[in-house]
Write a protein that binds this DNA or RNA. Structure first.
Lengths: 301, 301
DNA sequence: ACATACTGTAAGCTATAAGCTAACAATGAG
DNA sequence: CTCATTGTTAGCTTATAGCTTACAGTATGT
């Protein structure tokens, strides 16, 4: 079949509906000439006479009535389709698939996702925790939360917050707590985070000008942040962890910040999404909520 | 709602079907550029992102999947519609409404219509006998059979046969049978057919040059042909009747032709139909059958 | 019976949209 | 790393949707 022009079906249906080329043209917002011509072309396409025209009346032929019945179905279906889409556009709905790393996902995103799902009942949230960088398109991920530093960029990203890295030690690690200068750390037991590109090389800063680079001693290396935290809490040694992971433990005193007057590079937290022309409302709404909530919690921190 | 471009739905559906702009373009027989552009415009029309494109893959968004489901329905419906029409075009089907005058309809058309209905089981025949000239369009008449002489002409017509008018008298009307010249008739009792324009004025011809015009005596006037026939058979007088009405009676001897060597004007039998661009097959088929059968029966006559 | 207003179509034109070619950036396969 | 293939962009041509004007035919109103 050689694909007829669907728009002409709409024109034809309008003529049958209104019983007049002139009225159909009015409804369609074009001139009757065009309607007449387009319907004539449709008849040529179909090699069938659809309407019997008198100057005063227009009546469908039998073929015309058959086609009209189909057109009604088609047009209703099309209309429903765009209605459905505009509803979908207005209110977040459907499934929102969020990808996030285990650590940040569990501690920060999960509660927010729960709040989002409650706020928009028509929207189901599917939070996928994984430290592997997911293929957004293949896995149908709507938003991926990335902690750290962005590299590739065919994707669009929005910075939703930031984090500081803190050098911490278990409260009983007196040697570490006694350190006064970054260089003092090189000899201490250090738990490296294998997920980082340079797990041992750390850039310390104090004020605007004081910079030190220290290479830690390779002792234990663990490739996920929660496990590094656990090992640190267990007394395995010093480690560098993001603030959102250690805040509780610093508050309770189980961990102690080492060299608090020195800062380590801070990173960004980004929401990353495929470069689609029009962002689905569920994504827009979720990212908006993220930004708001995280700004608030960082203010308290 | 401001009527979106339906053709673009077909393009979009092709992309989702094939999973590729390039393949969709191939299937549609256009370039991928156009597909890309048209789908992009559809997205603008709908203010929604339908596809997530990587250079390597194309995946529908959630809105895209929703729309695609609708498109499948729409396209199937459209395809069915044209299939239905081309089937309808190939074989006569549906209702064929025929209008005909009582006399010719009953004696000639009715048997042919019966044969036609038998020949095409998918086609129902509705034979409407009436001597009033019907409004073809208003009454959904597909073919109107007209006996005599055509006047108006917004309609299309095809001559399917002809008839001769015969001057007849009942077998016991010896005065009429004794007539030798047309002029002898003026004094005889004559039954006029009021349905004609000039019921009394008759043009006789013999050979190529002999012409006579005779005005009959106004005696009885009846405005339908069958009634004229009945009156004639009852011995009311002479009358002029079409050959298809009197053939049987001439054969049985109940009527006798008067002045058989003189001929009266012959008329045409026409099939008349609305001026539609493409004639429905049922009409074409029926008229073809008419022409064939009537030629055959006139040959015998 | 006659003028009139309105019907659908035809003809000729304009502008827009559909379509093509060529070139490009991105990406995955080998 | 190279190369083929993907979808998009840009620039252009062609087709066609659409408008204006004009016309023939027909109901309708007077």
């Amino acid at each position: 079949m050689e694909a007829i022009n669907l728009n002409r079906l709409a024109y034809f249906a309008a003529v049958v509906d209104t019983g007049s080329f002139t009225k159909a043209a009015d409804r369609l917002g074009i001139t009757k000439t065009v309607v007449s011509q387009q319907v004539a072309r449709l008849e040529v396409e179909l090699e069938t006479s659809l309407l019997i025209r008198t100057t005063r009346r227009v009546e469908p032929t039998e073929a015309g009535r058959m086609l009209y019945a189909r057109c009604v179905m088609i047009l209703r279906e099309a209309e429903d389709a765009v209605d459905e889409l505009s509803e979908a556009r207005a209110e977040p709905m459907g499934v929102l698939r969020i990808a996030a790393p285990h650590d940040y996902g569990a501690s920060m995103i999960a509660p927010l996702a729960a709040g989002f799902a409650r706020r928009f009942p028509a929207c189901t949230v599917d939070l996928v925790l994984s430290d592997a960088r997911a293929d957004l398109v293949a896995d149908h991920i709507d938003v991926s939360i990335r902690v750290g530093w962005l590299d590739d960029s065919t994707l669009q990203a929005r910075r939703i917050g930031s984090f500081r890295q803190r050098l911490v030690a278990p409260a009983n690690q007196f040697g570490a707590i006694a350190a006064r200068e970054p260089e003092d750390l090189a000899a201490l037991p250090f738990i490296a985070n294998g997920a980082l590109r340079e797990p041992l090389l750390w850039h310390f800063a104090r004020g605007d000008f004081d910079r030190r680079v220290v290479r830690m001693r390779q002792g234990l290396s663990i490739n996920t942040t929660p496990a590094v935290l656990a090992a640190t809490l267990a007394g395995g040694g010093l480690s560098v962890l993001p603030d959102f992971q250690v805040a509780d433990h610093l508050g309770s005193g189980r961990l102690v910040e080492v060299l608090p007057e020195w800062t380590l590079p801070s990173g960004g937290i980004h929401a990353v999404y495929p470069a689609a022309r029009f962002r689905p409302p569920k994504v827009t709404a979720f990212v908006a909520m993220l930004v708001e909530e995280i700004r608030r919690s960082e203010g308290k921190r």
